Simulated assay, not measured.
Amino acid sequence: MTTEPTGFTAGKTKFYQGTQQTQPLFCIEPGIPCDHARAQASELMGYAQELTISGLMNENPKLVWAAYYLGALAKTLMDDAEAGMAK
């Protein structure tokens, strides 16, 4: 049994790195089923958490920095899915 998607990503959420940036570092495309986008965002957040812990335990700031970007991507994806569900 397949279920219909609960909505689709809006494609309006963008992530900008730094202040006064006019070009987004990444953005979410419209039309991704929101349930899939939310599942992927959750998985990315888990990876970001693992990178953060590994980076702190191994005193490796590169892993913490990578976790920051992965977490930002996950948040951007989740925000866009939420915007799509609100339509």
Rank of each mutant, 00 (worst) to 15 (best):
M1E: 10
M1D: 11
T2F: 10
T3D: 10
T3P: 09
P5E: 04
P5T: 00
T6W: 13
T6M: 14
F8M: 04
T9F: 07
A10N: 07
G11C: 02
K12W: 03
K12E: 12
T13D: 02
T13R: 08
T13H: 09
K14S: 09
K14G: 00
K14I: 01
K14L: 04
F15D: 00
F15M: 11
Q17M: 13
Q21L: 07
Q21W: 01
Q21R: 13
T22E: 14
F26D: 00
I28W: 09
I28F: 07
I28Y: 11
E29N: 12
E29C: 05
G31I: 00
P33T: 01
P33E: 02
P33G: 05
P33Q: 03
D35K: 04
D35G: 05
H36A: 08
A37P: 03
R38Y: 08
R38F: 10
R38D: 10
A39S: 09
A39V: 04
A41S: 12
S42P: 01
L44D: 05
L44V: 06
M45D: 12
Y47C: 08
Y47F: 15
A48N: 09
Q49D: 15
Q49K: 15
E50V: 14
L51K: 06
T52K: 08
I53V: 15
I53W: 11
I53D: 15
S54N: 13
G55K: 11
M57K: 15
N58V: 06
N58G: 07
E59Y: 13
P61C: 03
L63E: 06
V64I: 15
V64H: 08
V64S: 10
V64T: 14
W65T: 05
A67W: 05
A67L: 07
Y68I: 00
Y69T: 06
Y69W: 09
G71N: 09
A72Q: 14
A72C: 12
L73S: 11
L77W: 10
M78A: 11
M78N: 12
D79P: 01
D79S: 05
D80T: 02
D80W: 05
A81S: 12
A81C: 05
A83D: 07
G84Q: 00
M85L: 13
M85G: 01
A86F: 06
